[in-house]
Design a protein around this nucleic acid. Sequence first.
RNA 1: GGCCCCAUCGUCUAGUGGUUAGGACAAGAGAUUUUCAAUCUUUAAACAGGGGUUCGAUUCCCCUUGGGGCUACCA
Length: 467
Amino acid sequence: MIRTRYAPSPTGDPHIGNIRTALFEYLFARSQGGEFLLRIEDTDRERFVEGGVERIVESLKWLGITPDNIGNFPYQSERLEVYKKHAFDLVRSGYAYICTCSKEKLAADHEHQAKEGKPPRYEGHCRTSEFNLKDLKEGCYVIRMKMPENRKIIVSDLIKGKVEFDTSLLDDQIILKSDGFPTYHLAVVVDDTEMGITHVIRGDEWLSSTPKHLLLYEYFGWESPQFAHLPVILGPDKKKLSKRHGATSALGYKDLGYLPEAIINFMALLGWNPKDEREEFTLSELEKEFKIENVNKAPAVFDIEKLNSINAQKIKDQILKIKTTDNKSKYLDTFGVDGLREGELDLIGRGGYNTLKEAADYIKKLRAGSDYAPEMLIFRKSDKERTLTGLQNARSKMQQLNKWENDEIQNALLQVVTENQLSNGDVFWPVRVALSGEEKSPSPVELAVALGKEETLKRVEGAIDKL
RNA sequence: GGCCCCAUCGUCUAGUGGUUAGGACAAGAGAUUUUCAAUCUUUAAACAGGGGUUCGAUUCCCCUUGGGGCUACCA
């Protein structure tokens, strides 16, 4: 049974790069008929953020990539004794040792090493010391793993291929901190083993520490899982995506009016592709199509324009679906627009709005109506008199309509044109301006349907008064 | 600094020891229309550089350059 996990630290809203990793972990598991699990890595008490776990769960649920153990997932902070036991097992078997060096001493060592141009490393004062546990005060020691000298460790990565590391360049890594918490390296190895994780899919930044983990598996006598290190996501400046690039959390995009379907589709395409020219995917399609070997090695730049375009497309897709259901009135309620009518839905579907928020803002503005200068009503090839004729006849023609639908309104306006020897611009333009109050807007017919008969006639009336 | 990863249009990417190097987003142009943000058509746009290997390299190898990561009692 294939099993992957998403193991975030609750240090704030999950970052889009982080969530993309979760997506790939989810997709890999699903594509293989396996399980996708969640685990909270809260071993860093200094960076812990209240409510972080809730935000993680909310993000995953929103995107529809809910872990299989969502009802009961482990927290590392609740398993301190387990890690401690394993750390001491390693001390007993000689693969790790207790170290009582103070942080001050280590800092001084590192400073010294830096001056000599050497890499900062633990100098191994405690490596051969024997400590009696009873003499040690709680909180005054750490446990370090022993790094063998001159060993080559080969990481076989599903994405990067074989990567070789030399252990003499690696430090005697601390695995148990003085506060009794494990470091990532210990906890990840213990937990992945206990949870039966078969494939560790994680960010690129972990590749360099993978040899440490491999060594730990060896020390414990455990079988190691397979690894796949994903390239990072960069900002437009090709620097690692961060807060200064704007919204970076998944939920931030939710608030901006992006659909989960769009975020999923977009993230999947960042570093993965189906090896053909398809670009539109739903989550369930991705679950079938995803192949880890089709993941790129190179980092990808997060392009908001592409996301916008995908989101606009997904909004259109959704409008088509919503029209046949009864929840259309609720579509934009989170952005302050209730009771959408059919015509308004059409407007959104055709408008190419990048986000739901933009669409909602437009509907709000349309409903409120905009003030405009009377001159705007006159088409550039027209004059005041013909405009007035057009508006007045349009009003009475529309007044007589029984059915308030696209074709009927269109025909009514066309009739006004022919019956009064006017041009399209003498009628369509001023009606459009009367309804929208804007230089640029959807067509008068679409606006009329969206506004409804009563409001449409009221606004045309208002325009006539203005002239 | 050391170690590791990476490199095709501006961006996401496909691709092959011999191709007109393909698609998408963005950009430009045009068409249409009452306007446009919609729609349709269309144009421009890339193999980072230098060495090899080879009859032939964008493709394989090496170097350089550039970008990224790691080098914590952070993950």
